[in-house]
Simulated scan of single mutants.
Amino acid sequence: MVTTVRTVLGDIPATELGATDAHDHLFLRSPLLPGQELDDPVRAGESLREFLRLGGRSVVQWTPHGMGREPAALAALARGTGAHLVAATGLHRAAHYRPEPLSRIVGTAAELFVSELTEGIGDTGVRAGLIKVAGGFHGLDAHARQTMRAAASAHHRTGAPIAVHLELGTGAMDVLGLLCRELDVPPQSVVLGHLGRCPDSVVHHEAAEAGAFLAFDGPSRANHATDWRLPELLLSLADAGYSDRLLLGGDTTTPDTPGMSHLLGPLRSRLELTLGESLLEQIFSGNPARAFALAPHRKG
């Protein structure tokens, strides 16, 4: 069966993704990051072209609704560079929004997500290909539960994968318990983000055994156990038979984040010493083609 990924310029065969940054942001705005907005199309284009120069092909954007996604600019960048870009719908943690507009959105979030996946974001006609939600610290707060229920409903109606921000890398099994066991989302349609921020191998293996994709997506962050623990974490999972579950991303959140260029530059060179080229090819190209493909879905 030929599977497809929904990019900002339309659906493409999943096999065309090529080397993929599985979690990043070309545009991002949050009240938690005042003065550190990613809102410069010229700079975004420079970052994207450098990623392509290093051998990249596709970038999956995890910027959700209300956080400065700039869908028209993403489409222009995709046309201008030839990169495949995937945009997100969804909602982040409540702290990333002003209370009043968030309260109006949450109650009808499932309809919003479906609309942005099938009709387009605003009046741009650019469709999202991913649903982004977020857990709480070591568990799920009320906002997380409400938005994940909306995400599950939208997944069942569209087949779109669900990407989950794990706060400081925690709460993975709580997320899978809600989405997969309670709400019947197939685990292979769930991408768990930020696992490297909490380098707990036991939890990583449990999540991989459950069938979810595991995104290690915060390289270059000296304040997290990311780069220096990453080779051993990935190798442990690969040796246990979970090499087909692994993803890597840059997660550029502020202008000073090395992000995409670090991912395919220094980080890839370092990982080759431990993992080898074949496994890295699977992580960068083979696995994203399955993780971000639209799944068969229920109607209505």
Rank of each mutant, 00 (worst) to 15 (best):
E111P: 02
A215G: 08
R69M: 08
E272R: 15
T147G: 02
P199L: 09
A75D: 05
G218W: 03
R157A: 15
T4F: 15
L48A: 02
A76E: 15
R57Q: 14
A208Q: 01
P199H: 07
G177Y: 04
W228D: 13
T108F: 03
R43A: 09
A22K: 00
L33D: 04
P296W: 02
P266Y: 02
D251C: 03
L263F: 05
D141Q: 11
D239Q: 15
A215F: 07
E16A: 13
N287H: 03
E206R: 15
A87S: 10
T20P: 11
H23M: 04
A95R: 15
G276D: 08
S58T: 14
D141R: 13
G82M: 01
L112T: 12
H23P: 01
G122Q: 06
R29C: 06
L28T: 08
S103E: 15
P41F: 02
D239M: 10
D217P: 08
M173P: 11
S103N: 07
H25I: 08
V59K: 01
A293G: 12
A44M: 07
W228C: 02
T81V: 10
G211T: 11
L112Y: 08
G10L: 05
L168A: 14
G107T: 14
S220W: 07
V8D: 03
P71M: 09
A172N: 10
G196I: 07
P64R: 10
L183C: 08
G82E: 07
G286W: 02
H297M: 06
C180E: 03
R29E: 14
H205F: 04
R79L: 10
A75Q: 11
H205E: 15
E37A: 14
P99D: 02
D11R: 15
H96I: 00
C180P: 07
C180R: 04
D251E: 05
L48N: 04
S269Y: 05
R6S: 13
G18F: 02
E46S: 00
V5K: 13
T170C: 07
S243M: 02
G82P: 03
I12P: 00
A75G: 13
L279Q: 03
D217G: 03
L74I: 01
